[in-house]
Amino acid sequence: MARIIIPTPLRKFTDNQATIEVEAIDIRESIHALSALYPDLKKQLLDDTGEIRQFVRIYLGDEDIKVLNNEKTPVTEDAVISIVPAIAGGIA
């Protein structure tokens, strides 16, 4: 099963679970499977049409899925998927 690492800011939606295992063939299925398990997380990750939100960055291993095949990127049994929040700020 693929393992999804939940970033700490989103763990309140996963009963404080840091990693979740899902059965899926690609990234899209993985995120949908995760959303089905934790409905409160769903609106953080998916828009009203069920697409992964633009600002949600997803990595497969060390690779941004944008440089792979986006949501259609296949995942293997031992895949590690990370959801990454944007971290930024500053004076102005």
Binding site: I5, T8, Y59, V84, A86, G89, G90, I91, A92
Partner: peptide
Amino acid sequence: KRRRFEIDPLEYLKAERYAL
């Protein structure tokens, strides 16, 4: 960089892995 900061997503996810 005098007025803004940003952390690369890969560096962020490595920090999450380190924590785990």
